[in-house]
Design a binder for these strands. Structure first.
Lengths: 200, 200
DNA sequence: TGACAAAACGAACGGTCGTACTATTATAGG
DNA sequence: CCTATAATAGTACGACCGTTCGTTTTGTCA
C-alpha cells in the first residue's frame, strides 16, 4: 500500500472515532488534523470535500462493522446460532467498539432529514443492515428454528428497536440493568419467533 | 405577558423546530435570528449563553410533549386505554409534530457522551418519560389489564425501542410499512403483558 | 544518484461562529 | 406627555470553519 493510502486510512479511522463522539458534522478538519498531528491542508488533500470525507468515514465504519459483527456471525451454524451471534456481536458493537457509541445510530438521527450524499450513503448501509437481519431470520426459518409464519422484516424491525433501546439505556440513561433488559427483550423475541411445537 | 417573554417564546419555538432538523448544536444564533427576522444581538440578549438557549429549548419541547402526548392520555380511563393512547399520541409526536422528527431522540444521540448542562437537562426529561411509561404500565397492572408479574420498567424499555425503531423506519428508511410494523410490535407487546387468563 | 511524482505543509481566503459592548428604539406607569 | 426601563439593533471581536494555492518535503524508480 502506498503511503498516501495508508495515511488516508489513518485519517478515516480517526474520523470514525471522532464522529462517534461528536457526530459526523461535529468532525472538523482542523480538529481532525490536530489529533493526527497533521496540517489541515495536508489532511484535506486526501479528499475532495468534507462531504466526501464523511461518506468515506461511513464506508470505513461499515467495513469495520462487517469485520466485527457480520463475519464472525457467518462462522456460526446456520439458523438460530447465527441470530444469537448477531445479537451478541451487535451489542458489543453498539456500546464498546467506539468511545462515542454506534456511529450509524447517531448519523441516522443527524441526517434523517438532510438530503445529500451523506444521507444516501448512510441509507444504503442501513438498508444493508436491515436486510442482513431479515436474511438471518429467514435462514432460521428455513432451518426450522423459527416458525414458517415469521415475517423476517418484522423480526428485523423488532431486533433493531431492541438495539436502539439498548444504546439509549446504556449511553444516555447509564442504566445498570440495560444489558439484562436487552437480554430479556431478545429472549422474548426469539421465543415468539419459534415454531409453535417448540415454544416454551 | 410582557413583550420580552413573548419574544422569548417565539425564539424558543423556532429553536425547537430548527433543532429537530439540524440538531441542538446545529442551531446557530445567526440562522435563528435570520428566520425570526431579528438581529443576532437582539435575540441573544434573551439568553445567557447558547448552552442556556439549548436547555430552554429542551424545556420548551418537553412542555409541548406534555401538552400533545401526556395530557390527552390522562383523560382516558386508567389502565390499558391510557397505554394505548400513549402509544398513539407518541407515534404522532415522533413523526408529525416537527418537520425534523423527535427532538429528544436526536438530542439523545447528539449528547449521550457530551457531559454538561444540556446533557443533564436532557437526561432528566428522558428519565421522566421512561418513568411515565412505566407508571402507565403499572397502573394497567393495578387495573388488572396487565399481568401482576409484568415488570413496568421492562415494558418501558420495549415501548421505547418500538418508538425508536418507528422513527428510524419512517424518517431514514422511508419505509411505507413502518406504521404497520410498529402496530404489530405494539400489539405483541400488549399481548404478552396481559394476565394469563385473558391472553389470546 | 537524479528526476519526477506524491504527499504534506504554511499561509491565506471569505464566512460564520458565540459573545461582548454601546447605542437606539419601543413600551409602560406616573 | 414625560421619563425610566425594557427590548432590540449595530458593530466589533477573536476564533475557527471549509477550501484554495503555491511551496517544500518526502518517497519512488529508472
Amino acid at each position: 500500500m502506498s503511503k498516501g493510502a495508508a495515511t488516508c486510512d489513518r485519517i478515516l479511522e480517526q474520523a470514525v472515532e471522532m464522529s462517534s463522539e461528536v457526530g459526523l458534522d461535529g468532525v472538523t478538519i482542523g480538529e481532525l488534523a490536530k489529533r493526527l498531528k497533521m496540517s489541515k491542508s495536508g489532511l484535506y488533500a486526501h479528499f475532495d470535500s468534507k462531504e466526501a470525507l464523511q461518506c468515506s468515514a461511513l464506508d470505513t465504519a461499515a467495513a469495520r462493522f462487517i469485520a466485527v459483527v457480520v463475519t464472525p456471525m457467518l462462522k456460526k451454524p446456520r439458523g438460530l446460532p447465527r441470530v444469537e451471534a448477531l445479537y451478541k456481536n451487535w451489542l458489543r458493537w453498539t456500546t464498546e467498539e467506539f468511545r462515542g457509541g454506534c456511529l450509524f445510530m447517531a448519523a441516522a438521527m443527524e441526517f434523517d432529514d438532510r438530503p445529500g450524499a451523506v444521507r444516501n450513503r448512510l441509507l444504503q448501509h442501513q438498508r444493508d443492515m436491515m436486510d442482513m437481519i431479515a436474511r438471518a431470520a429467514s435462514i432460521a426459518v428455513k432451518e426450522g428454528h423459527f416458525a414458517a409464519s415469521l415475517d423476517p422484516e418484522q423480526f428485523a424491525y423488532d431486533f433493531w428497536g431492541l438495539l436502539m433501546a439498548y444504546h439509549h439505556y446504556c449511553r444516555l440513561l447509564n442504566c445498570p440493568q440495560a444489558r439484562q433488559r436487552a437480554d430479556h427483550s431478545f429472549k422474548q423475541l426469539i421465543e415468539r419467533s419459534r415454531p409453535a411445537q417448540t415454544a416454551a
